[in-house]
């Protein structure tokens, strides 16, 4: 059973239905027992970094995230759930993240604020990924595959070796990272049609 951590941020139903569509059982929950007993854990999320950290604290979910990752079971972070794994974010002031991975969350640079720019913020829509390391959830996913993004901040990991895929949007940034049992994506597998469903399928198959 895959546990999708519910901390009140965003559309979790799509993540659950995505797993079900490829034959994996998934439950949306904030029940610590369920998360502890799950074979796989997913930390999704959209919204603001600070609010999300506040909600994780309010629902007392931080320890179970640390426990899940330490236990070695496959762990997937999506979008804000990816950014939260890092040490700190500069979104709306400086916020501490979970600090599971070393690195910073930074604003995508704006060429100009008067609008006459080719790089609109948020980075919203379908962009390609360049695969650097084939993390288990990326098996069968080719470089230049299109996935769906929506974000205004990006992750800069301290250790470049963690970068599993890269994407260009004015800058080249880490669009997913992989370390041991943790895989996390800035993009939304649950919104990326066939490519995304394959990633969810692979994640559920990951032992």
């Amino acid at each position: 059973m895959i546990a999708i951590i519910d901390y009140g941020m965003g559309n979790l139903r799509s993540v659950q239905k995505g797993f079900e569509c490829v034959g994996h059982d998934a439950v949306v929950t904030r029940d610590l027992l369920v998360i502890d007993q799950a074979s796989h854990v997913v930390l999704p999320g959209v919204g603001a970094f600070g609010d999300c950290m506040d909600n994780l604290a309010r629902f007392e979910l931080m320890d179970v995230i640390y426990r899940s990752i330490a236990s070695g079971k496959p762990f997937l972070g999506i979008c804000l759930g990816y950014q939260l794994l890092f040490s700190e974010s500069e979104e709306f002031g400086c916020h501490q993240g979970l600090g599971i991975l070393a690195g910073k969350v930074k604003a995508i640079p704006r060429p100009s604020d008067d609008g006459a720019t080719s790089f609109k913020i948020p980075h919203m829509g379908w962009n390609t990924i360049q695969v650097n390391t084939v993390a288990p959830p990326l098996r069968g996913i080719a470089s230049d595959s299109y996935v769906y993004f929506v974000h205004s901040y990006y992750v800069e990991p301290t250790d470049c070796a963690l970068v599993s895929t890269q994407t260009d949007y004015g800058i080249s940034f880490a669009s997913s990272v992989w370390k041991d049992n943790v895989f996390a994506t800035q993009w939304h597998p649950e919104k990326s049609q066939a490519v995304g469903l394959q990633v969810l399928k692979n994640f559920g198959d990951w032992q």
């Binding site: 559309n11 569509c21 769906y148 990326s192």
Partner: peptide, 11 residues
């Protein structure tokens, strides 16, 4: 919306 989200995986 509920029924669409069960079938279609795009925004």
């Amino acid at each position: 919306v509920i029924r669409t989200a069960e079938q279609v995986f795009m925004p």
